[in-house]
Amino acid sequence: MAFLEVQDLQVYFPIKGGIFNRTVDHIKAVDGVSFEMEQGKTYGLVGESGSGKSTTGRAIIGLEDITSGKILFDGKDITDKKTKNKAFRKDVQMIFQDPYSSLNPRKRVLDIVAEPLRNFEKLSKQEERKRVQELLDIVNVSPDSIFKYPHEFSGGQRQRIGVARAIALKPKLIIADEPVSALDVSVQAQVLNFLKEIQSELNLTYLFISHDLGIVKHMCDNISIMYKGRYVEQGSTADIFENPQHIYTKRLIAAIPDIDPKNREKQFHNRQKVLEEYTQSYNDFFDQDGLAFQLKSISDTHRVALPQKG
């Protein structure tokens, strides 16, 4: 039994129009996504903006309504909002993309980090303060700053406060929605290494949503590539980076910059080649609507949306 199982998840947003504000069409943000997760591993979800990767994460935690499909957490069906009970809320937490808006500007750090504790654990004021200081200590924010407000911190510190809040209840799964994309590169490494550190300590599972392939390669055991609401390729990190099968994946990987100027010519030609392949075989790999086909297994870990003809 998988730890988290998503079956044929669909999230459609209605487009309203006409005189009576009827639903005239849908935006298929997530269109039939299935995957499984095992405990203690990191799963990357990569895609261009608008590909539905954030929506997938938000649908799992219950911030978006699910159009159809099923989500099983620890074997329990948690698809419906009502079934997302207290235990689920405690076990699944989220790290948000923007550290500037995900912390309530009117609350002190103490109140922000203690919010989940107040919801789930009855602690005395002293115990609560102690716990918050421990958590801040874990994320390398000075425990003395519990009475400060979020705007008194730098972006990196704020994101780490967000992380402290997410790990306060010792969850099993953390959905990290582009946790470092708003941060400086130097701070990115700091936060990422820290996430890895606490993963082994707390046996956390991450769903790591990102558009930065370098980070994903560094962080994840397993990577899924998403395009227009569908998976185009799914496999272990080695599968994706050493043996990409889908043309979209190939293009993404070719686009990773190489800082060695000696390779410049080579890289350029490589990219040209991939682009040529992409334009030539575009119609083979995508249907008339420009959507990817069903995933097919090509090895135990590797699944690709290969052309129907084979």
């Binding site: 699944v92 937490q93 948000f96 995900s102 912390l103 309530n104 809040r165």
Partner: peptide, 12 residues
């Protein structure tokens, strides 16, 4: 805003 959404995921 994210902080309201975050509160939801925290079980508030």
């Amino acid at each position: 805003l994210d902080y309201a959404q975050a509160s939801k995921t925290l079980g508030t």
